[in-house]
Write a protein that binds this DNA or RNA. Sequence first.
DNA 1: CAGTGAGCGAGCTTCCGCTTGACTT
Length: 776
Amino acid sequence: MVENLVIVESPAKAKTIEKFLGKDYLVKSSFGHIRDLDKKGFGVDIDNNFKPNYIIPDDKKNVVKELKSLAHDASTVWLASDEDREGEAIAWHLKEVLELDPKNTKRIVFHEITKNAILDAINSPRPLDVNLVDAQQARRVLDRLVGFEASPVLWKKVKPQLSAGRVQSVAVRLIVDREREINNFKITSAFRVTAVFLVEDAGKTVELKAELPKRFDTREEAHAFLEKCKNATFTVEDVSTKPTKRSPAPPFTTSTLQQEASRKLGFSVSQTMSIAQKLYEAGKITYMRTDSVNLSSLAINTAKAKVEELFGDKYSKTRQYKTSSKGAQEAHEAIRPTYLDKESVSGTKQEQRLYELIWKRTIASQMSDALLEKTTISILISSANEKFVATGEVIVFDGFLKVYFESNDDEEDKQSSDIILPPIKVNDKLNCASINASQRFTQKPPRYTEASLVKKLEEQGIGRPSTYAPIITTIQNRGYVVKEDRQGNERQFITLTLKGNSIKEQTKTENYGFEKAKLFPTDIGIVVTDFLLKNFDMVMDYNFTAKVEEQFDRIAEGNAEWNQMIESFYKSFHPLVENSLQLSEKANGERVLGIDPVSGKQVSVKIGRFGPLVQLGETTDGETGEKPKFASLQPGTHIETITMEQALELFKLPREIGSFEDKKITVAIGKFGPYLRHDNKFVSLGKGDDPFSIHLERAIELIQNKREKDENAIIKTFEQDADTRILNGRWGAYISSKKNNYKIPKTVKAEDLTYEDCLEIIEKAGQTVKPKRKKK
DNA sequence: CAGTGAGCGAGCTTCCGCTTGACTT
């Protein structure tokens, strides 16, 4: 029997709070939501004012049972879930499900887990905010309506098992739109001119690098400019120095932590979250799912003391940050170390690195601005109107930069360092060592990384801290998006160099377009996005979430009624469902490439039952025509970008390339990549082999290699049964019998097995039914 | 292990946000 039962959302939080409250309080966790809309059926009664049908999911039954019995015995129940929309709803569901008596039920909230904050909260309980609960119900029901009405349309009109939703469909759209921007981008080039001057500095000769702000469009213009510079004199026109300052970034939120951990540590967003979860459970950091940049006053004071201890008063500057991101609900603090005086923690290497990052960011946020001095020198050219400009930057006072430097998406992680200019006065004549004009190309827009997609979603107010990582996983699991590396291409560029009195021209090569761990849309992702854009434009609008959030806010403020809001939404949404179901055609993204010059038949690409394919000839109705020929698209090619040549290539397989030991060898591409077929045996091609050009000699070599490997793989054979053998595979020895494979128990040595032993293992394996793996 | 692309039509798929473990390979 306990006096007071406090219910929070997270068990780690419960543990901490219990310590603050003493023995009269039992603190338990609800593990998030305890009820949800029924998954079977629709879960919302559309004809009955959108009444939600809530059920307790199986994995929450035990939690609910325990809480119910504890609540029954307690004299006061304190509902201490988060102070946002979802938290309020959790409190309300608890009240309903646990059948709490309003007389001894109290709702409390706190933003930080400190003793004072919690005691304050206990002293100022408030009633449940039903308006906020209603706003959550509206959010929940709207998401269910969109997801469970739009997805089935996709099953019928595109492919079964697909999904659509307020958040995921827009996330995919961002990636599809970006890919199209990239495909349509026209690369242009211009000549960038840089000069190196030699300057005397205290007896030494140092270089001064300057650039021409103007770029030349053509090689000829660049050349003409260099010609003009041949006998020119260069005079310093102006030297100006301007002080600037830089301020530290605010403490981490979920989104910024994911971005920085990706840029600085190379973690995927889900990796970051699970490492952060470990740190949180160990009490080393505050809660990791937050949109707030706020720090508790306790944290600010500890940070101040730590900064002063480490670097002195001059480096300390306390700051309160305000959240600017759309739709932030600020139920928690920013992500920070629980104990800011600890610079490092024990744990795995990854935990240590993430902790260190969080520590540095938090500490830096409470440090002084960095003071810099930016110097600009302009240099006149006697024979031309253009001017060279040299810029330098010197850190006068490093401030927070001593600890932390925020990375940027667009460039690789370059540390901020001084660019020091030599001492130069106005009217100085400069000695020019060389001038170079290099052809530079415009860059295509960058593809999203997981982290930059999260950033974009947050900017648009789409998704929540707890869902950023799952969204990224979902759109990949559904096959809409793939995370891939892509090889770059080589290209040539021209450089012109003026040195002494001669201009030298060179053609150089550079690599460009290399992509690492970027998000690419798949063909199905593109087809689904186009289908949804055409039929559900309202939901696909980038501002859709922001617009409905405004209405949720009105409900939360008590200025709108949730059922009415949903009703008016449904009135405009549901007809879209009906209309799209009326469409007779299925969406397959078909694109006609043209006419095959050889057969005169139409060549087209589209999504088929088993993925993207090329089709030669048309599906002419019935008896007259011959059937069209089909071939699957190969990885790396896409419906939207494949060329006629690439498409026709695919019909050249399977290809007979000769014979060996009186049996013919054919080459084809199958489920597992390119392979050779010979004497009813299959041999995969090597990495460097091209199925379209491989010749007989190499094929025979591959066949013989394979034979040798198979030979070595045999550990034991049996006279009684040629179909049962012990083989050495990728994961060690196994039994192969009549095309089935069986695991050998670790307790026995494979060589010692008798034929009878093998039969026994096979027998046993047959009894245990393999559970069918559920596709994720 | 190395295909398929027609059609019939069981029974199933699916959303977003809160939270953690419980599961293989």
